[in-house]
C-alpha cells in the first residue's frame, strides 16, 4: 500500500513564559492510502497537537521544532506557511471536534460548502453547488438543496458534523484528519456518524488519521492504532493487537479503564496518578511514575522503541526483556 503520510521524529514545542517546552517529543508513524489510523491517549497527550502540526494550524506560540512530515511524497516542514496553506483542504482536510462552533454562524451552509470548491478547483458557483448537493447526499443529509440556503444555527449537531464531513470530502484530500469528530455528539448520533465514516472509507482514496480517547470508537473504526503518552508514542500496532493483546502498561491501563457494564463487579480501574504537565521534565520513561512495573532502568533511561512482532511496536524496557 502506498504511504500517504510519513511522520518522523516530530517535535513540536510550545513557548510558555519565554521558554520552549516540547509537547511532542519525537513522534513517528505512517498512514497508508485507504487506511484508518486511530491515535489514542489521555487529554493533553499531544493527539490534537500532532494533527495541528500536520495541518500547520498550531497556535501562534507553538511550532514544529524538528522532525519531518511527508504528505503525498512532499516534505512539509521545509515549506513556507503560505505554501502549506495552499495544500490545506486540497491535500489534507480536517474534521473538528465541535460541530456546533466549527461552522461560521453568519454564512449559509451552501456558501461554506462551495467556497473550497470554487477556490481550489476553480469551479463556477453552479457546478460547485451541484457537487455540494452530491456530497450532502453522500453523507446522508436529507433535502440537500434546502440545506444549502440554511444557516448553521438552524441545524442539529449531528447534521452539522455530516456537513463538515461533506465539506472535507468534497475537496478529495489524500489525508483526512478527524479530531474527535464524535465526542461532542450524543451516543445515538455518534453511532450514526461512525457508521457513516466507516461506509465512506470504502469509496474514498484517502488515508484517515482518527483522533479519539474512546476505545470503543477505536475498535469500531481503526485499522491500526497509535497510542500516545505525554508527547511520546508508547505503542503502535494493528487494532486487533492493541485491543486484544496490548503490551505497553499504559495501553493496558487504558483498556482496563473501559467500564464493562456486563461484569458483576462493575468497577472502573483508573490508572493511578495524572499525566505529567508539559513543563515537567521526567528522567527515564515518562510513564514510570504511574507504572506498576517500573524498574530502576525505567527511572534512568528513556525506553527505545522495538518492533517485537512485525507491525506491532512498543517503547517499554520491560516488554523488550520479556519478548526476547
Amino acid at each position: 500500500m502506498e504511504k500517504i503520510l510519513e511522520v518522523k521524529d516530530l517535535v513540536t514545542t510550545f513557548r510558555i513564559a519565554k521558554r520552549e517546552y516540547p509537547v511532542l517529543r519525537g513522534i513517528s508513524f505512517d498512514i497508508h492510502r485507504r487506511e484508518t489510523v486511530c491515535m489514542v491517549g489521555e487529554s493533553g497527550c499531544g493527539k490534537s497537537v500532532t494533527a495541528l502540526s500536520i495541518m500547520d494550524l498550531l497556535p501562534v506560540n507553538a511550532h514544529v521544532a524538528s522532525g519531518s512530515i511527508v504528505l503525498d511524497g512532499q516534505e512539509l516542514t521545509t515549506l513556507s506557511h503560505r505554501a502549506r496553506n495552499a495544500l490545506r483542504g486540497e491535500k489534507a482536510g480536517m474534521i473538528f471536534q465541535e460541530p456546533m462552533t466549527a461552522l461560521n454562524p453568519l454564512l449559509t451552509i451552501g456558501y461554506q460548502l462551495t467556497e473550497g470548491l470554487r477556490y481550489h478547483k476553480r469551479l463556477d458557483s453552479k457546478t460547485a453547488r451541484e457537487l455540494a448537493v452530491q456530497y450532502l447526499k453522500k453523507v446522508g443529509v436529507a433535502n440537500p438543496v434546502e440545506r444549502l440556503k440554511q444557516f448553521p444555527f438552524q441545524l442539529s449537531g449531528g447534521l452539522r458534523q455530516r456537513i463538515m464531513i461533506a465539506l472535507v470530502m468534497s475537496l478529495q484530500p489524500s489525508l483526512i484528519i478527524a479530531d474527535e469528530p464524535t465526542t461532542a455528539l450524543d451516543v445515538t448520533i455518534q453511532k450514526q456518524v461512525l457508521a457513516l465514516l466507516n461506509a465512506l472509507k470504502k469509496d474514498m482514496d484517502a488515508g484517515i488519521l482518527f483522533i479519539t480517547h474512546d476505545l470503543g470508537v477505536v475498535a469500531e473504526i481503526a485499522d491500526r492504532v497509535v497510542v500516545l503518552y505525554s508527547g511520546m508514542k508508547v505503542e503502535e500496532g494493528p487494532v486487533e493487537a492493541i485491543i486484544g493483546a496490548p503490551r505497553h502498561p499504559y495501553t493496558q491501563g487504558l483498556l482496563h479503564a473501559v467500564p464493562n457494564v456486563d461484569a458483576e463487579d462493575f468497577v472502573i480501574q483508573a490508572i493511578p496518578g495524572t499525566l505529567p504537565h508539559v513543563t515537567e521534565e521526567i528522567r527515564g520513561c515518562r510513564f514510570h511514575p504511574r507504572c506498576p512495573y517500573a524498574t530502576e532502568r525505567c527511572r534512568q533511561e528513556t525506553p527505545v522503541e522495538i518492533e517485537f512482532v512485525p507491525g506491532h511496536r512498543v517503547a517499554c524496557w520491560n516488554v523488550k526483556e520479556s519478548a526476547r
Partner: peptide
C-alpha cells in the same frame, strides 16, 4: 480564536478571504 476561523483556515483559503 474561534473554531470557525480554524475551519476556514483548514480549507486552505487565502488569509485575505
Amino acid at each position: 480564536q474561534s473554531d470557525y476561523i480554524r475551519t476556514a483556515k483548514s480549507k486552505g483559503l487565502s488569509g485575505w478571504i
